[in-house]
Design a protein around this nucleic acid. Sequence first.
RNA 1: GACCCUUUCAUCUAGUGGCCAAGGAUAUUGUGUUUUCAACGCAAAAACAAAGGUUCAAAUCCUUUAGGGGUCGCCA
Length: 463
Amino acid sequence: MTTTRFAPSPTGYLHIGGLRTALFSWLWARKNQGNFLLRIEDTDLARNSEEALEAILKAFEWVGMSYDGEALYQSKRFDIYGKYVDQLLAEGKAYKCYMSKEELTALREGQMAKGERTRYDGRYRDFKGTPPKGVEYVVRIKAPTEGNIVFKDGVKGEICIASSEVDDFVISRAGGVPTYNFVVAIDDALMGMTDVIRGDDHLYNTPKQIVVYEALGFKLPNFYHVAMINNEQGKKLSKRDGATDVMEYKVLGYLPEALLNFLVRLGWSHGDQEIFSVEEMIALFHPKNINKSSSNYNLDKLLWLNAHYIKNMPNVKLAGLLKEYGVHIESHDKLELLLDATKERGKTLVELANQINLILVPPSEYDEKASKKAFKGDANEILADFATLLKTYKTSLHTPPEYHAVLEKFVEGKAIGFGKIGQPLRISLLGSMTGSGLDEIMAILGVNETVARIEKAIGHHRI
RNA sequence: GACCCUUUCAUCUAGUGGCCAAGGAUAUUGUGUUUUCAACGCAAAAACAAAGGUUCAAAUCCUUUAGGGGUCGCCA
């Protein structure tokens, strides 16, 4: 059975890089009817925060990714890790190291000065003497001293790292709290992980974890290291260019289906296909199609996808979502018309909300430049005549085509061009020169409101 | 600095030695439709990082260089 996991440390919010690796893991598990587990990596007791964890869980909920079973907290499993430390100590596969922090710093500085990769020198590996006083020991694991550590990465291929690059790293801190690389290996093994999909910032942790797997006799999972997401310029992603809290995308008016579609195509592909529903992603995803190279964050594509999903969303559902953006149109009798007239004009729910408000809220001011252009000559008279004509219909006009017919008849009767009435009418109704179709706007507003806005605009432009 | 990974249009990508004088998508530009804006349709422009090799044949394999990323914690 395929088992994957997402293992965040609750030290900050979830950003899109984390969400993407979570998505890949989740898709792979769901595709294989396996398990997707959540594990909270909170062994650094000082840096954990409750809010960060809640934010992560909320983000998962928003995008609709569900994990199986209960979330597992590493901080509650210290006794388990402790037993393994004891076991390795007893078997001679790990040892106590009494090196002080000062000595360690000095060692590193020396190595750095020589241009080497810093590493512990193994001075307590075979120590048999009397431990120095006043130093609390840490436990280090014995890493191989010769040869290479080789493993197969499902994304990058075979990775070969010289054992000399992997030192006897700490598995248990002074005071007995175990360290990351140790507990990750144990938990992944104990949780039955078959496939570990994670960011390639973990690539160098993998040989260390393999040392643990082998010392403990655990079976290795398949590793997949996914390259990072960079910003548009190919540099490290920062808050300014997209590395914000995933929930911030909700505030900005993005749909979770658009965000997931965007992320799944960042580093993964299925031929030329661009649009993927979640069901399709699950059906088509395979880690063998994950890209080796890093990809750059590109807001334009996300906006395009978001617009796509807005356009194709049923109006009733859209109306429900819009409540969170201050637009309450669920009981509006022209709901369908209103959204049909606006949803192609908003790339985000925020923009869509603005488009809707542009129609629903009477203009409080008129675009000055456009007014000047549209209201010269006899625009006021034409508008007044049109309002008079509209009033004669009172309750018999409902649909856009009906309004269109009236408008057409009016233009013909007056023998004027469409622009003569169209421009001032649009400014009267919306206050601006851009927006939805006039027929639709009038049908949404109804005769009374349309006439009221026209008359108000005439009054305003009389000077 | 050392070690590891990586490099196809501005961006996401297809591509696994001949089907590639490199395909799709976004963005851009032009154009059509239109009562404006948008949406949509059509079209254009746009890339194999560089140099050497291997081969009858290289975007694809090898080497070097250059760019980008990652890692070098008693953080995760």
